[in-house]
Each structure stands twice: as structure tokens, then as C-alpha cells.
Write a protein that binds this DNA or RNA. Structure first.
Ligand SMILES: [Mg+2]
Length: 833
DNA sequence: CAGTAC
DNA sequence: GTACTG
């Protein structure tokens, strides 16, 4: 209901500029979405983070002493794990060349666990090309047609025997610092020949990365010796979903059991495989996977097809889920419900299974397409990649290597490749089959003993191989079978790439077995923009309804009452359903005359349709009209600022009907200004407050930085009488956010005011967030998430693995944000979704 | 965790 | 959806 109004003032504080927002909550009725601002960008600090090493903090920011350094081009940077003695150690490996390409340097650095995050961010930013419109260069992220980054230093490079001055950009600076660090610990090179095991899969899905398969052979004997020395076996953690550590059990009863941290499931699997093999006395040839970022040059499009790891591949064998009667079971173990896809799109009309649970029980996220008794294997990589991989004979088998951490990751990636077009606001959440595929994999990985589906695959492949030339690679085949028996059909460690020919190519699963069903086609993306359909943040501006009157207003008014009640109760799903129904009705061109007509509208389900029926028949709705003590109290109390569903319901259950007695500071203030806070704020008053805040802001101590600005500003505003009460953010604790109460001189009404301080480079994102609407924001953030980004009011990053994100992507305007995300720009007035 | 902001 | 305060 309220129209958010923001304004901003920029100011220069020391070297860094900060932007200040002040938002007024409330607002006059029916103003269009509005904002006023006048930012001027003078400087931006790019990148952030630091590496702590050997007691010295190296800030990955413009550094002072760099003029003596050469400028290096980074050829590759690799994050991998190595077994150093008995410890898995994370290694960052650089390969660099000087700009003159005189010499190339290969260096390694150990990365302490707590800095893996930093290093990962840094690598992403160095390596990744973001979208067509935004590329990432050594100089930093740049949107098409403009050069964003600024040089942070200069240096000299040798050119034709002459010194030539050149700029150092932030990202290069990071590389330089990295190289410096590496040089400081060159003693690490003695480990260079030590056995490699499994790579961290953090970078698995980088589009510009290649997964270097089978590079080098692990020195088996070292590992063998280690395991034999320990004399034991590897035990899975009791927490089967998330393997957090492994136990090395000694056969010698006197020795202790060591428990070691363990983060990568793939490592666990590899280790257990080796252990098992050792027990059987068979020869083990273990290769490691390595992910190498091959080029640090701007990612050209032709790069994308080549050296491309077929990103997301999953095996899902649904027979696991199916019971005898052919009805699949959901993750609860209950028979799943058969539904039909209602949403317009490539999958309309298709049947699918999902969890049968209904409100208030929580529905699990089980999903499968509605072809009972069929084994479904989904492995749809990007088409170009499929082609390539098939040709090369590197089938899906290679990449079904899976661990729990990874599964979610690839899930995201699948969504990037084929973002499913479901409206997040749709009743039926039609999840892509890939999604369940990953769940299937997860399931599989956790059920160690019985793998019925694996049997199937095994036989399939045996047959397949028989059909192929049997004489070929007799030995290799044997080994392969051996591996499968060990539960290794889902992972393939090929022999050394240089020394042997690849094994007989596995056939694409669709052709391999008659029991496998077709891969559901990806949503049709041929129509440009099609896949963005259903996201509120991409709604056609002309379709956004702002009408205050429409043919069904009598219905929506009543439904709003119910929506409000649901909100007060904290029942977000009902609230959501009512909101959807109301939006649908607002969009409906004619007056709804019958129950059936209402039911046919998308966004209106059975229950709401019945209610609409009642409204049509009687002109009112009993449920909404009925007033009792409870609903009255609910309505009144939840309007108190600081009291939400829980508090209000607690009050009511305690018998509070009138004025609550037990109040905290916030609810006290909320109650004190109860009436005023319901009132909207006239635009002129907003402007007047804006002017006042601005005036005070410019009188502020210019040496203050960051959040101290807020403290100072709030202090001054309080002193001059504008701020009368504080709600949050007024403590000593550093905060970028203040929420309080203000009143202009000579005015009667008290107003809620928010003040936030942001570093200037966050301006576009802060502006985007504040402009809203809430629904618009959520929609955009959802889109970002589904496309491998993370969007907040502070930064936008790439996100491939939970917890590991790229450096923030530089944006200098709201348009940039849309571009980065591959969305069409929407003007503020078109964001009223 | 509850509440708020968009 | 994300981030912040209490
Ligand atoms: Mg409230």
C-alpha cells in the first residue's frame, strides 16, 4: 500500500565517496513509483578481499609499491588439492608470462583453508566471462562498449629495448600480489612432484574453464604406502548426506583412530576406491582431475565451445523411486500425486508426479515426469557440447562423477543452460527433471549397499561393449568392469591421456537402453526472450496494472481482507495465493459472472474460486465479513510497528485485546506513533525532509568514513530536532542502516524514516533495491540465482557453489545490473509488479 | 528467531 | 530473495 520514497545525497569523505539514502516509509496514496537522486561518480574502488600469509596482510587493493614490478599475463591459475605427506593441501598454481612473453613462470602457493573463499573469488573474477554484454578482462569486469576499470598504478615494461610505461589495473594487481606471495614461499616447489589426488570441484562449472582430465598419473605407491601404513579402511561419516570427515581405522587395536576433516566427497570416494583396490591386491591407476583456467585473456565466444567441460550431467534412474504399482514415491516415501502442467510453455499438458502433501503439511520437492516404470536418465548438456563430446567419445559416464556438494552446484548450472520458465508465483511448481536428477544422484551416493539401477547400467554397458569390437582394449575393459563392481560406474578415471587411447565410447544413454525414457526436451529458447517469461521483473510494462478501478474491484476488495489477515497470521502461502488471485482479477478484462469463469482464470484455484462464487452470489463473503474479537485484535495489533505475526498471536493468546502492556522498545515507539505511522506522507513533506537531511549532511565532519557517517548524521539530526525516536541502528555498533522516527519543525505528524549509508560503488544496487517493488526485487533475485548469480543490495556476484562466490561484478548503473543478468531494462515506473 | 525493508 | 537489527 505504501509508496516507498527514497532520495540520496552524495558526499565526499576522504578518498572514498559514500552515498546516502534516506527512505521515508509511507507516502501519499497513488503516487507513481518515484525517486530522486543525483549521484556523481568520481571514483570506485574495485575488488576487495585480502590474503593473509606468513603473518603479513596483503590487501588485494591498489597497493603502493608496485612500480618495480613487471606486468605479467596470467596463463593459468589452478586451485587443486595435493596430498602432501598425509595432509590434503590446497594449492594455487600460477602460470604466468611477462607481457613481452619473454619467460613463463610456474609457481605454486598453498592456500590455507580459511582463504579458499578469497582465492576462489579472485579466480572467478580473473577467469570468467560473464555474459555477452559483460566481459571480464585482466583489467576487471567491463560492460560492452565502455571501459570501467581505472588503473591503480603504473609500471614499465620492456619493449624493443626501451622502457614503456603501462598501467596496472586492479585485477592485475591481484595477480601481481599473488605472484609476490608465491615467490615468498618458493620452498614449496619441493612438493611439486608429490602425488596429486582430487581437485577441488569448486570451479567445476565455470563456463570458460576446461576440466583437464587425467593429467598425470598419481604415484600410487605413495598413497598405497600411506594407506597400508595406516593399515585401515575408510569409514563414511554417520552423516551420510554430508560427509564431513573420514575415519582412518587402524587394524592395530592399540593405535588411535584418527578423524580428519573432510570436505570433498569426491576425495572420499577416490580414497575408498583406492583402499578397496588395495585390499583386493589389484593394481590401481588413479588419475586426478584438474581444473585449469586456460586463458586469462578476455573470453571470446569461440573459446566457449572448445575445451569445454560438459557442464551439468546427472544420472537419474527413476525406477528407484517407483513402487510395484508403478506410482513413484516422493521423498517422504509416500505415493506421489499425478498432476498436469498448467503453465503455458513447452511442457504444457504433460503429466508429472510431485509430492501429494497438502497444506499445512510441507510438500517435499520430489519431481518426476509422468511416465511410470520408465528409467529416466537425464544428461542434457548444452547442445554444442553434446555433439562434441559424443564425437570425442567422452560420454556422459565421465561426468556423472558426483558428490553432494557438487550436485547442487550442477543443479544450478543446469538451470543456467535451461532456465525453466516457471513463474515463481505459479501454483504448480513445475521443476525441471534435471532437478530431480540431482536428487537422484544424491540419493544414490548415500545408499551405499544396494544400487539396483547400477545393475541395469552395468548390464547395459556390458551389452554395449559386446556390440562394439570386443577385441579392442580387452584389458581396459576388464579394469572398467572391475571398477563398476566397486560402484564406480558413475565415475571414470581414464588412463593417462597421453599414454593410452580412450576406452570404447559409451553410448548416449537414450540410445543405450530401451528402458530409458526420452530426455525431456529443454524449454524452447528459440524465441528470444522466451525463457524470461514468467518473471515479474521482465513483465511487459504495458501489462502492469495500476488501475485503481477495474471490473472486479468488488471481489478484490474482499480478497484483500483475507490476504491482509493471512499476512498478519504469517501464513505466507495463503497470502501469496490471495495476492496472485487479486493480480489475476485486476488483469481480467471483464466482470467475472460465474464461479466457473473464476476457476478458469490462471492464478485462481478451487478454493478461491468458491469464495469468488460466494461473492458473486451474495455480494459478500462470510469469512471476510465475519468479525470476532480475534480478527479485530489481529488487525489492530499487527499494525503496530515491531509486532509481527508471532508477537501479535502471542499477545492475543495472552488475552491482550486493547493496548498491549508488555512491550519492548520498538513496539513502545510503534504504539506511541500508531496513528501517525498509518498515514501516508505528502510528497512535499518528503522533499522538505530530504532538504533538511541534506543540509545537515553537508555540515558533517568530512573525515568520517563509512558507517561513522551514519552515526554522525544521526547525532546531528537528533540534535537539530528532526529525529525524535530511534527504532534500530542507533547503537554504538557499526551499522549502515538507521531506522527511526522524525518530525519536521512545525508539523504535527511523526514520520518513519530510514537512513542508509552505502559505499558509492554499491549505488546502482542500492538504488535498484530501494526502487522496488518488493515483488520485483524478489523476482530479479530469483532470476539471478537461477542463472548462477547472487544479487543483493550490496553486490552482484557469480555463484557456482554454495558459499563460494566471485568478486563483485562491477556495475556503474542500474542498466549494468540488468545487462549482467541478461535481462531487459525496466524503468522505475515499470517496476510496479 | 522475529521483525523490517524493498 | 536478501540483509540487516534487536
Ligand atoms: Mg507490525
Amino acid at each position: 500500500m505504501s509508496v516507498g520514497i527514497i532520495f540520496c545525497i552524495t558526499m565526499i569523505v576522504s578518498l572514498v565517496k559514500f552515498t546516502l539514502f534516506a527512505g521515508l516509509v509511507g507516502g501519499q496514496a497513488f503516487y507513481p513509483r518515484y525517486r530522486s537522486y543525483s549521484p556523481t561518480v568520481h571514483c570506485c574502488v574495485l575488488g576487495r578481499g585480502s590474503v593473509y600469509l606468513l603473518g603479513t596482510m596483503y590487501i588485494l587493493q591498489p597497493a603502493a609499491a608496485c612500480s618495480a614490478l613487471m606486468v605479467y599475463n596470467l596463463i593459468s591459475v589452478t586451485l587443486e588439492e595435493k596430498m602432501i605427506e598425509t595432509n590434503m593441501t590446497k594449492i594455487l598454481r600460477f602460470e604466468t608470462k611477462t607481457q613481452a612473453e619473454m619467460d613463463s613462470i610456474k609457481l605454486e602457493i598453498t592456500v590455507p583453508d580459511q582463504f579458499v573463499q578469497n582465492v576462489s573469488r579472485w579466480m572467478y573474477t580473473l577467469a570468467e566471462g560473464y555474459t555477452e554484454d559483460v566481459r571480464n578482462t585482466l583489467e576487471g569486469a567491463a560492460t560492452k562498449g565502455e571501459v570501467v576499470p581505472q588503473a591503480v598504478a603504473t609500471t614499465y615494461v620492456a619493449e624493443n629495448d626501451r622502457k614503456k610505461e603501462c598501467d596496472i589495473f586492479p585485477k592485475q594487481m591481484q595477480v601481481l600480489i599473488g605472484i609476490l606471495l608465491v615467490r615468498k614461499i618458493t620452498q614449496l616447489t619441493e612438493y611439486a612432484a608429490s602425488p596429486h589426488l582430487v581437485v577441488i570441484f569448486h570451479l567445476y562449472n565455470l563456463s570458460s574453464t576446461s576440466l583437464g582430465m587425467n593429467i598425470g598419473t598419481v604415484q600410487r605407491r605413495v598413497l598405497q604406502q600411506q594407506i597400508l601404513n595406516k593399515g585401515g579402511r575408510v569409514v563414511e561419516s554417520p552423516n551420510d548426506r554430508n560427509i564431513t570427515h573420514y575415519l582412518v581405522e587402524s587394524s592395530d587395536a592399540s593405535s588411535t583412530i584418527s578423524q580428519q576433516p573432510f570436505q570433498n566427497t569426491s576425495q572420499f570416494v577416490l580414497l575408498s576406491y583406492v583402499t578397496e583396490s588395495l585390499k583386493k591386491g589389484s593394481l590401481v591407476d588413479v588419475q586426478h582431475h584438474r581444473i585449469t583456467i586456460q586463458s586469462m585473456q578476455p573470453v571470446a565466444d569461440q573459446n566457449r565451445g572448445t575445451n569445454h567441460h560438459p557442464s551439468a550431467k546427472k544420472i537419474k534412474v527413476e525406477s528407484l523411486h517407483h513402487s510395484e504399482d508403478g506410482i513413484p514415491k516422493c521423498n517422504h516415501g509416500l505415493p506421489a500425486a499425478l498432476r498436469q502442467v498448467k503453465k503455458d510453455g513447452p511442457n504444457t499438458g504433460k503429466m508429472f508426479y510431485c509430492c501429494q502433501q497438502q497444506y499445512p503439511m510441507k510438500r517435499c520437492n520430489y519431481f518426476s515426469w509422468g511416465q511410470p516404470n520408465e528409467t529416466v536418465i537425464t544428461s542434457p548438456p548444452a547442445p554444442s557440447v553434446v555433439k562434441k563430446e559424443t564425437k570425442e567419445g567422452k560420454g556422459w559416464l565421465h561426468y556423472s562423477f558426483s558428490d553432494e556438494e557438487d550436485a547442487e552446484d550442477r543443479l544450478d548450472d543446469v538451470k543456467i543452460e535451461y532456465p525453466h520458465t516457471d513463474d515463481p508465483t505459479n501454483n504448480i511448481t513445475c521443476r525441471s527433471p534435471q532437478l530431480s536428477g540431482s536428487e537422484g544422484v544424491q540419493e544414490e551416493m548415500s545408499t551405499k549397499n544396494k544400487r539396483p539401477w547400477q545393475e541395469t547400467l552395468q548390464s547395459t554397458y556390458r551389452e554395449e561393449e559386446r556390440e562394439k569390437k570386443e577385441e579392442r582394449e580387452e584389458k581396459g575393459k576388464k579394469e572398467k568392469k572391475e571398477k563398476r563392481k566397486l560402484g564406480w560406474s558413475e565415475m571414470s578415471y581414464d588412463t593417462d591421456d597421453s599414454s593410452q587411447t580412450p576406452p570404447s565410447p559409451p553410448i548416449a544413454p537414450t540410445q543405450a537402453d530401451s528402458t530409458t525414457s526420452q530426455i525431456p526436451p529443454p524449454p524452447d529458447r528459440s524465441a528470444k526472450g522466451m525463457w524470461r517469461k514468467g518473471f515479474a521483473c521482465q513483465q511487459n510494462p504495458s501489462q502492469i496494472v495500476q488501475k485503481e478501478s477495474h471490473p472486479n474491484k468488488h471481489i478484490t476488495d474482499i480478497l484483500s481482507v483475507l490476504q491482509q489477515k493471512s499476512t498478519s497470521l504469517g501464513d505466507k502461502w495463503r497470502e501469496y495465493a490471495y495476492r496472485k488471485a487479486i493480480t489475476a482479477l485486476k488483469n481480467y478484462p471483464q466482470k467475472v459472472e460465474t464461479l466457473e469463469e473464476a476457476r478458469a482464470i490462471r492464478g485462481i484455484g478451487e478454493k478461491i474460486a468458491v469464495k469468488i462464487g460466494e461473492i458473486i452470489d451474495t455480494g459478500e463473503l462470510g469469512q471476510a465479513k465475519h468479525r470476532d474479537e480475534f480478527s479485530d485484535a489481529l488487525e489492530v495489533l499487527s499494525k503496530i510497528w515491531g509486532a509481527g505475526p508471532t508477537t501479535v498471536q502471542r499477545w492475543i493468546s495472552q488475552g491482550v485485546r486493547g493496548r498491549p502492556q508488555l512491550l519492548n522498545h520498538q513496539t513502545k515507539i510503534g504504539l506511541k506513533h500508531y496513528e501517525d505511522f498509518q498515514k501516508r506522507i505528502p510528497r512535499e513533506e518528503v522533499s522538505a525532509i530530504e532538504a533538511k537531511v541534506q543540509q545537515v549532511l553537508y555540515s558533517i565532519d568530512k573525515t568520517l568514513k563509512g558507517c561513522a557517517i551514519l552515526v554522525g548524521l544521526v547525532g546531528l539530526l537528533r540534535k537539530c530536532g528532526l529525529l525524535t525516536d530511534d527504532l534500530a541502528g542507533a547503537n554504538d555498533r557499526e551499522s549502515n542502516k538507521y531506522m527511526g522516527v522524525c518530525r519536521l519543525e512545525g508539523k504535527e505528524t511523526y514520520r518513519r524514516i530510514d537512513i542508509r549509508v552505502y559505499p558509492l560503488h554499491e549505488w546502482p544496487l542500492a538504488l535498484l533495491y530501494f526502487t522496488g517493488s518488493d515483488h520485483f526485487n524478489r523476482s530479479m533475485r530469483l532470476w539471478a540465482k537461477k542463472n548462477g548469480f547472487h544479487l543483493s543490495e550490496h553486490e552482484i556476484t557469480r555463484r557456482h557453489v554454495k558459499g563460494l562466490e566471485s568478486d563483485p561484478i562491477m556495475v556503474t548503473s542500474e542498466e549494468d545490473v540488468f545487462k549482467v543478468l541478461g535481462l531487459e531494462y525496466r524503468a522505475p515506473e515499470d517496476r510496479d509488479v
